[in-house]
């Protein structure tokens, strides 16, 4: 097991947002967090990456607990947020370099990956641009490449296809499948149910901050059909 969340509860301003959430993910698995707006998907993801504090519970990636050594824990995942979190002072190329330094990525691997991704996402001509000169879609592409650069066991993605054009979305889909085959665990939240069915192996459905159902994605399709009837 790569990722383990046990009895995780989160409160915001005294209101319970997540209540006793449990989930597990295995190597080479794509797990989709689904649910209506306000169900707690993004909060759960932000809690798992340490952006939001939890009230109780245990979150572990491999053997590293978030509570023991957050810095080591953070080295085990990368994250693509819904809204790109870019540095105002860095150009596109400098962003990639910052990620290389932060995750200690090997120079050769880094150079090859940067070239490949910049080409695939069609941002080669934007390498010296600052974030404010990029469109929202371009910023999302830069953020996506940054998160894809390190070799980490877990990749968290919040609404991965938002803002990406069709070609970039398609490439990302292929890349996620390729990474999954290499053993990476991918946790994604999305409202696009067709993407869930196409990509995910398992799902966790959240309702009012609690897990209402979970299992293989086939059972999600059955659940969806039943709800339609």
């Amino acid at each position: 097991m790569v990722l383990r969340v046990e009895n995780c509860s989160v409160e915001i301003g005294g209101n319970p947002i997540l209540q006793h959430v449990n989930l597990q993910a295995w190597p080479g698995e794509i797990l989709a967090l689904v649910g209506h707006n306000g169900a707690g998907k993004s909060t759960l993801m932000k809690t798992m990456i340490g952006m939001r504090g939890k009230l109780s519970g245990l979150i572990k990636i491999q053997q590293e607990s978030m509570d023991d050594h957050l810095k080591n824990y953070k080295r085990l995942f990368s994250y693509i947020p819904e809204e790109p979190l870019l540095f105002s002072e860095l150009t596109t190329r400098q962003h990639f370099d910052l990620y290389r330094r932060s995750y200690s990525i090997d120079e050769d691997i880094f150079a090859a990956r940067v070239d490949r991704y910049m080409d695939a996402f069609e941002i080669t001509d934007k390498k010296d641009d600052y974030p404010e000169a990029l469109s929202k879609g371009m910023r999302q592409k830069v953020q996506t490449i940054c998160a894809l650069l390190p070799d980490v066991p877990v990749l968290f993605i919040d609404e991965p296809f938002m803002g990406l054009d069709v070609y970039a979305g398609q490439y990302l889909e292929e890349e996620l499948i390729r990474r999954k085959e290499q053993g990476m665990t991918i946790i994604l939240t999305t409202h696009q149910l067709d993407k869930v069915k196409a990509l995910a192996d398992t799902y966790v459905m959240l309702k009012n901050g609690s897990v209402s159902s979970s299992g293989p994605v086939e059972s999600f399709e059955r659940l969806e059909r039943r709800e339609h009837k």
Binding site: E89, L90, D97, R101, S104, Y130
Partner: peptide, 21 residues
């Protein structure tokens, strides 16, 4: 990731900020 690597990244960020400013 040790402390000195974080320091290096921090310095890179600061230098880039200075240049952009």
């Amino acid at each position: 990731m040790n402390r000195s690597e974080s320091w290096q990244v921090f310095r890179v960020l600061k230098r880039s900020r200075r240049q952009k400013k």
